[in-house]
Write a protein that binds this DNA or RNA. Structure first.
Lengths: 213, 213
DNA sequence: CTTAACTCGAACACCGTCGTTCGGGTTAAG
DNA sequence: CTTAACCCGAACGACGGTGTTCGAGTTAAG
């Protein structure tokens, strides 16, 4: 898989049937790089809203022809795969922008929630879509790479006595992401004020993860 | 919509083109009622697992022919609609089995979570599926009917000082359902022990909704 | 300027699903 | 037992999405 090159071959045909794609993975033209970026962005937005993709719609949203799309991504599976990789990079970038290693863990979790609930929710939506179109195996690996930061942060909080230890750690991570996602969903539905969302999330999460009295 | 009757008309045809369905909504035969129940159950299970329905698969899971399915439900939309109504009834029944009006509200919420997280999650899954195949308008009404009980319960707890009032009530309801759903998802993924789920949920929810110190 | 990479619309075959029809077999109800 | 309701498999036309090919135009790169 993953040929994804020019594919023109125009007039003369059928002289060399095998390996008809000249510049395999050499540096693309500026033109092509622009198209790829537009497709990736459009597909990310589309998949972030729901898993009902449609190659034609994605191409239209990217301002690109359907044939061009197939020229770069040989199948829907390849497209989704590339979009996931793209989103992982963005999510990791968002997580890097938050200082996680200093101060009490609950405060760090609050900072994380306050600044990144939006992109992290988009990430989750994409995971659901990717799970349907790709295998759960490939998803799991990527997802865990981002998830591990939160796991370590929670572990640190537990060692410091700032986070409860009477419940499974995996469940605390799940609860963290679930609340993040729920807040994003409520904002999308107009039930929650985006301006308040950060504080609301911080208050709820710290309360849920605080050691019981 | 919702004709859904015998539809046999066999040999002789085209004498009376209009109203060719004899026993409109009279009492069906025992046979038919059995089929309808099987279809409803199979569709509920299928939609509870994911929105990728497939009339043929549902029919097969119900142990019924595809034609029979269409005989009772003229379209996929009609089927989903009926399944939603069926699920609403089940969910309301589950909620009725829990004593909500006595004792402190947090304890009542714990009881609710402990005994009904499974069916309430199935209900939520179905909502997502129904939202795609039906309008969001019809969904909203049904969903709210069940949701209002939790809203009233939370309101009572707030009046008694047992539940926090520093966050929007709608958000507390969302958080309650989000944690319920997350727990069911973790159980399905094998990350959470079903036997512990009730207690884990109760501990998390009471902590998240308790007034801050 | 020349060349090769890139883009594009139109059209095609393929496949899965939907909803329907036909004809005949089965089963509950009187 | 008789009748009408019900069930079923096979097959059909329609629709929408996928991935591909053709032929010609456009655009970056040397």
């Amino acid at each position: 898989m993953a040929t994804s090159t020019g594919r023109h071959d125009g007039g003369a045909a059928a002289t060399t049937p095998t390996a008809a794609v000249p510049p395999r993975d050499g540096p693309r033209r500026a033109d092509a790089r622009r198209s790829i970026a537009a497709i990736l962005d459009a597909a990310l937005a589309a998949l972030g809203r729901g898993p009902e993709i449609n190659m034609a719609e994605i191409a239209r949203a990217a301002g690109v022809g359907r044939v061009t799309l197939y020229g770069h991504f040989p199948s829907r599976e390849a497209l989704v795969d590339a979009v996931v990789a793209h989103a992982i990079a963005r999510a990791a970038e968002a997580l890097d922008q938050v200082d996680i290693d200093t101060g009490p863990a609950p405060a760090a979790l609050s900072r994380l929630a306050t600044t990144s609930w939006r992109i992290l929710d988009q990430h989750r939506q994409l995971m659901a879509a990717g799970q349907r179109h790709l295998g759960a195996a490939r998803m799991r690996e990527h997802h865990d790479r981002v998830m591990d930061r939160v796991r370590k942060l929670i572990g640190r909080g537990q060692a410091d006595g700032d986070i409860r230890t009477d419940l499974p750690t995996d469940w605390l991570i799940t609860a963290f992401y679930a609340l993040l996602h729920a807040a994003a969903e409520d904002v999308n539905a107009g039930r929650l004020d985006p301006a308040r969302t950060g504080d609301v999330l911080a208050a709820t999460i710290t309360a849920a993860l605080r050691p019981p009295a």
